[in-house]
Design a protein around this nucleic acid. Structure first.
Lengths: 296, 296
DNA sequence: CGCTGATATGAATTTAATTCATTAGCAATG
DNA sequence: CATTGCTAATGAATTAAATTCATATCAGCG
């Protein structure tokens, strides 16, 4: 119905101020343009501009369309430009580090898909466990880091992938299992099971328990599955992203509870050096991540 | 070349995962779609997705297009929706107040243009001289306020119209006339001519002289033309927006100098109640302002 | 009033999009 | 490993749409 062609016409009309000039700009006859606009006006069932003035005067409706054109056309041009760049692009290598262990759940299929086009990506998930990857990114020893925390925003670009909720999981017969949500106080004496990450870098401590008192114990395991098994057996509680929790909860193995009345929402970013943000290979990886997580 | 039709195809393809399903969604035959995509791929000279998988797998190029589609299509739909609303709209009245006197220069033609479609706008420029219009906006005694300062952002929408530079104007033979820029100190003993607005609400004091010492005098006049005549005659200096200054400077009547090394940049906003920001009449007024100032 | 520059219109023509009918490819199935 | 079912590709025919050509209309201006 509305097509980009029409947006170009409107935008050019604004620039040139008349149909004849617009026709020349667009390499059309004046007649063709006249027909095109009449058709569009008929389809939209409104007049877009008054012809008998210099420059033509846009109606409110014409101005809405003009506004759309001015928003959309630059984006279209940018995409065309990227399309050109994305061809004849030397195959590159991507060194990726992951701060959130639970991310492997969606990351591995994503990488597999990405690898169909760029086979040389290398995922450095060994080092991810207990170090801060951002300095390596700044030093050029890494290309990409998956993280929830923005640091060094001057030199790094943090592309937003999606938001998730961190949920507390407990055994179905756990005393907390039927609460609408938990408070920091509720966790005071619990055993919290987690991946082997220092406490100060765990979201549940950093963003939920914070300075509240915690007298319980911390137990670390390096297998994600094991966390569910331990929690299900009542050996402790854990905080995990919602996307990991859902399938296990559906099976009735565990129960998930929001952290706080509003839930604990966290973002997920793909961090890279600022100068890389327009690189086609990086963009493709970013898009693959986004598309694979669009339903989260 | 790229058309919205194509973006719809790509977006639907992402949703449905196959050509046949996409064809059904778009009320086309499978054949038509196949042809359409082949043509597009030929024109763009690249493959957009691999067909032999479920769901179809997008190439980097396909994903760029998908990204574009996801940005653009919602905007197009929003505009279609606004177009419908903007028809069968009861004619309304707009009460407008102006905090910046120099704005009348472009505002009056803008209103004239706007009036072609909504004749009942009433411009309250009498009251604009020395009072703060925002409380009246909040109370519902006004509909729109032109201002450079954001206040009450929770209840009000500040639509950005354009940015301008505030320039100091002096007589061509004034001691400051040949400086690359002026400092607050340069103005210490000058006579500053302005519209009759309290000092604390004038941009040059609020954003430039600030707490610096000022021992000069303030002279107010209520006619814009008079300011130029007084400055040109060497009776004082004034700070005015660049768009007002340019024609007079071209005639050689005055000289304009940036305020500070970087110039003093100020935004111009159209303030309205949050709930009015999608109203077609308001949008049309906003667009008329923007379009009339796009070259500033 | 008659010229000029701009837009509108209708019929003819060209170009593009769509369909129809058919073929080919792939994967699941027994 | 032939059979079935589903999906995509292709070429020719058809339909629809965009564009042009030739001409008409209209507004502004001296």
């Amino acid at each position: 119905m509305i097509e980009i062609k029409h947006l170009k016409t409107i935008a050019t009309l604004k620039e040139t101020g008349s149909l004849v000039n617009t026709a020349r700009e667009l390499f059309l006859t004046q007649s063709a343009l006249s027909h095109q606009i009449k058709d569009l006006e008929n389809k939209l069932d409104c007049q877009l501009f008054e012809r008998k003035t210099h420059p033509v005067r846009f109606t409110p409706q014409g101005m809405l369309l003009l506004e759309l054109a001015q928003e959309v056309l630059p984006k279209v041009e940018a995409t065309k430009c990227r399309l050109k760049e994305s061809l004849n692009q030397p195959i590159s290598q991507l060194r990726l580090s992951v701060e959130c262990h639970a991310c492997f759940h969606w990351l591995l299929p994503t990488i597999k898909e990405f690898n169909n086009f760029w086979p040389d990506i290398h995922v450095d998930y060994e080092r991810g466990f207990s170090y801060d990857a951002i300095p390596e990114l700044l030093d050029g020893d890494l290309d990409l880091v998956l993280t929830s925390d923005i640091r060094e925003p001057d030199r790094l670009e943090f592309a937003h992938l999606f938001d998730f909720k961190l949920k507390l999981i407990v055994a179905p017969d756990h005393p907390l299992a039927n609460k609408a949500y938990v408070t920091a106080l509720d966790l005071k004496d619990e055993t919290i099971i987690s991946y082997p990450i220092p406490r100060e870098r765990q979201d549940i401590f950093k963003h939920f328990i914070q300075n509240a008192r915690f007298d319980g114990t911390l137990k670390t395991v390096d297998q994600g599955l094991l966390i569910f098994q331990l929690v299900s057996a009542g050996m402790g509680v854990a905080a995990l992203p919602d996307w990991l929790v859902t399938p296990y909860e559906a099976q009735g193995l565990i129960k998930s509870i929001p952290l706080g009345a509003l839930g604990l929402n966290r973002p997920m970013y793909l961090a890279m050096k600022k100068e890389m943000k327009d690189n086609p290979v990086y963009r493709h990886f970013l898009n693959t991540c986004k598309q694979n997580n669009s339903r989260k």
